[in-house]
Amino acid sequence: MPESHIIAEGLTKRYGDFAAVDGIDFDIKAGESFGFLGPNGAGKSTTMRMIAATSLRTEGRLEVLGLDANENGPEIRSMLGIVPQADNLDEELRVRENLYVYGRYFGLPRAVVNERADALLEFAQLVEKKKARVDALSGGMKRRLTIARALMNEPKVMLLDEPTTGLDPQARHVLWDRLFRLKERGTTLVLTTHYMDEAEQLCDRLVVVDHGRIVAEGSPASLIRSYSTREVLEVRFGTDKNEQAAKTIEGIGDRVEVLPDRVLVYADNGEQALSAVTDRGLQPVTSLVRRSSLEDVFLRLTGRSLID
């Protein structure tokens, strides 16, 4: 059993009467990739800030690398790499200076900081940009620089708050590749996301959070197994007719869900479900059979299908 890196019990953050995080428990092991999945406002970022000891918890226990988070901010952060949701690079400094100065904030010697800055420029594929102004970088480059910066102290744990939000697909894949390399090196990754593909790519284990509470926990595969079927059939009948068609479909597969633009049929065999639908005399405009994904789990658990 690997040691625990982060332990939370009954972790709570209240702002006045509002509980942003409402009594959650989790235990993140060394070397693990752990994800917080949830809609906007579920309490993911607040949880991340409490782990980083930049937000003080109201109640419960939170131990990060063996230290109490409310009491030991600087000591804890010396072992963390923090990638915030919005880039907060130092715009008054150039690209390489951002790494250098950040390393100095950890109290590391100049020689060490210089050496690491060069190595990380390489890692982040930013060597050519080392003298560039930060505001001249693309979104993907800024993100990579933020991640490189977070690695200056060779952290044991990386906290990544929505690492790829707002990036184009190519930039996301480059970033995933870099994160995967960290994972291979044994760095513990803790990330929040509302992208299901990201969670599936990167997380060994994840919790689904909604309204400040954990509603499910497990590996991506086990969550799909417990909360969805193996396959999903998507059929479209046209905006006005979906509702009507769904009534006829009812009974096929495990579960039927109506979205404004399509009807989802959860079934272990999508092709069989499709022929069952046509057997009932329905002619969908388009149909698609796909593997069930975390998105289906997410929509089911957080009850936030596109209808509301």
Partner: peptide, 14 residues
């Protein structure tokens, strides 16, 4: 606005 302190507080600075 510049979120400078947010960055500094991601390090061991207090």
């Amino acid at each position: 606005y510049a979120k400078l302190y947010q960055g500094m507080l991601s390090t061991s600075l207090g």
